[in-house]
Simulated assay, not measured.
Amino acid sequence: MTHTQLPDLEKVTNAAFQKQFQALRPILEAEARIKQQLARLDGQLRQARQDSTKVEGYQVSGTDVLWNSWESATRRQLNLQLARTRAQKLAGMEALRTAFGRKQAVETLRKKIQQANRKANAKKHFGP
């Protein structure tokens, strides 16, 4: 590899890293959204438990059973979505790590070449 090809390689590895990062962003946003929905559901559950003790007829009418059934199904669905999203995130993180490693390797190579060139130039100008 010549030193003139190195900047092109650096651009390509940086672009690959950015592409992987951008691909991961919607997955991270989806994970955050699902976590927020689970937190909201937890808040609703706390509120429903507090309200059920205050409201007459809540348990007698079976409303508590229906609400608990809805809450359980909703929680199960959100947890499934979260598991799928986290699986996608893990795959995306692996691709991002690989792209980052390549980017770092090229940057390290560039720095080593620059140092070698500086040493060679100093040797030319100032002698052995």
Score class of each variant (00 low, 15 high):
residue 49 R to V: 07
residue 78 L to S: 05
residue 87 A to L: 07
residue 87 A to N: 06
residue 39 A to P: 15
residue 64 D to M: 08
residue 12 V to D: 00
residue 126 F to H: 15
residue 81 Q to A: 06
residue 67 W to G: 05
residue 18 Q to P: 04
residue 16 A to I: 01
residue 6 L to Y: 00
residue 43 G to H: 07
residue 104 Q to M: 11
residue 110 R to L: 01
residue 21 F to G: 02
residue 54 K to Y: 07
residue 101 G to S: 10
residue 92 G to A: 01
residue 16 A to H: 02
residue 128 P to C: 10
residue 14 N to H: 13
residue 125 H to D: 12
residue 86 R to K: 13
residue 118 R to K: 14
residue 83 A to N: 06
residue 92 G to L: 00
residue 26 P to H: 04
residue 102 R to Y: 00
residue 56 E to S: 14
residue 126 F to Q: 15
residue 59 Q to H: 12
residue 99 A to K: 01
residue 7 P to A: 01
residue 24 L to T: 04
residue 56 E to N: 13
residue 60 V to P: 06
residue 78 L to W: 04
residue 25 R to F: 09
residue 85 T to E: 03
residue 63 T to R: 14
residue 62 G to W: 08
residue 83 A to Y: 04
residue 86 R to N: 12
residue 68 N to M: 13
residue 17 F to K: 03
residue 32 A to L: 07
residue 98 T to L: 02
residue 68 N to V: 02
residue 38 L to F: 09
residue 112 K to I: 01
residue 109 L to C: 00
residue 122 A to W: 11
residue 62 G to D: 11
residue 62 G to H: 09
residue 24 L to A: 03
residue 89 K to Y: 15
residue 126 F to R: 14
residue 72 S to A: 12
residue 31 E to S: 08
residue 24 L to G: 01
residue 91 A to W: 02
residue 83 A to R: 05
residue 15 A to F: 03
residue 25 R to I: 12
residue 42 D to L: 06
residue 19 K to P: 02
residue 119 K to E: 12
residue 92 G to H: 00
residue 112 K to D: 05
residue 119 K to P: 06
residue 71 E to T: 11
residue 101 G to V: 03
residue 81 Q to P: 02
residue 26 P to V: 03
residue 57 G to D: 02
residue 127 G to R: 09
residue 22 Q to L: 15
residue 117 N to K: 14
